[in-house]
Design a protein around this nucleic acid. Structure first.
Lengths: 202, 202
DNA sequence: CAGCGAAGTGAACGCCGATTCACAATGTCA
DNA sequence: TGACATTGTGAATCGGCGTTCACTTCGCTG
């Protein structure tokens, strides 16, 4: 029975990954210490060698996701200096990230994760806000260089950019993947980018 | 102690309203039969006189919301025949509905509501899809009458329309109302409507 | 090789929440 | 008024889940 002994660091990684996997399959509310331990090949109480509580596991899992998301932004920004192109790449990588990690959707579209944990909710909001600020910065950059029209506020456009992804992700989530988020994102991008660049008739 | 005796129909209304209120305040995961009963002025077991289970309560609550949403669509459609104007009104009423019933956000951005209940999830998806079909119909109408350019698929535009609301609602939800959804919707609408009508330069 | 700390085990605890059931109160209709 | 159905009550049940703890096992280090 006895499971192999591994360092806490390794176990923490295994555990957060297992958590994300379980969440992807069944939703956040179906995540229990028992199932989690079972998936890692441990006994429930063993989890407490590596995390103080279930909340800590969730926090770590979320932090893990946030990092990956921000990496996306950074790499897109380094790839090109054309703001419009950059946004297009960011859109694609964002959709892809979500497609490969369905657990992200379950977490974002969850409330059991936040209710009764104002601090976590706040942290998540700040993460999203930080992401939007990055997007707004890219847009503002495009406006300065004349690639994007200046009629609209960069921040409004940033939220609209999120609006290209979120409903698609939501529909994909609700339809269990039947709705093709990538396809919609691509179609919507055509409209939106025309909007960004084309409205220079003022 | 004994609570007044009321007809099941009345109680069912009271109960679903109380549920929506509790959800608005604390989130779906904080909804319990005990709190629910307490809010209505009953004892937990009394709820079972009017609903077979907690799931039934949630189902009824959701159905209640769906109805209101569809009413919004209908009344907006009857108000005007100008497609663009109609969408604008629909946007406003949608934002207002969500603003006044924060519980809706908690339900939509929940997973405890769906996980393990594929039927309910499917029903919710169909409700959203039906809403989008209505929006798409309005847009298609506008395209026929030349008010909206025909470059893009009506359904894509409908999902984008949802994209004007959803991220704003999400941010408002995450920031506990700090983010002003109505304001963003209004700003985003300017961009989007210009997009709809203005792209007729092809 | 002795010992010490880190990692794993399994049983048990405590809590909370959904649901049930026998019983009481109420309202209606003949 | 008397019977029957409906609604409300309170106690009890039942299960699940997070967490704790005393103990064991493993692996490194002096």
């Amino acid at each position: 029975m006895a499971a192999e002994k591994l360092e806490t660091e390794v176990r923490q990684d295994q555990i957060t990954n297992a958590a994300l996997g379980l969440i992807a399959a069944k939703g956040v509310s179906e995540l229990s210490m028992a199932k989690l331990a079972n998936r890692v090949g441990l006994v429930p109480s063993a989890i407490y060698r590596h995390f103080k509580s279930k909340d800590e596991v969730l926090d770590a899992t979320i932090a893990h996701i946030s990092e990956r998301l921000m990496n996306n932004v950074r790499s897109a920004r380094k790839e090109t200096s054309d703001a419009v192109e950059c946004l297009h790449m960011l859109l694609a990588s964002h959709v892809e990230l979500v497609r490969q990690n369905r657990g992200i959707l379950h977490i974002v579209f969850s409330d059991s994760v936040y209710s009764g944990r104002p601090l976590r909710k706040q942290r998540m909001y700040q993460a999203v806000a930080a992401y939007l600020n990055e997007v707004a910065a890219i847009i503002a950059d495009g406006q300065v260089h004349g690639l994007i029209c200046r009629d609209s506020d960069a921040h409004t456009l940033a939220v609209m950019f999120l609006g290209l992804i979120q409903p698609a992700a939501f529909l994909s989530h609700m339809s269990n993947g039947e709705f093709d988020a990538a396809e919609h994102a691509e179609n919507a991008w055509k409209v939106f980018s025309a909007c960004l660049t084309g409205a220079q008739r003022s």
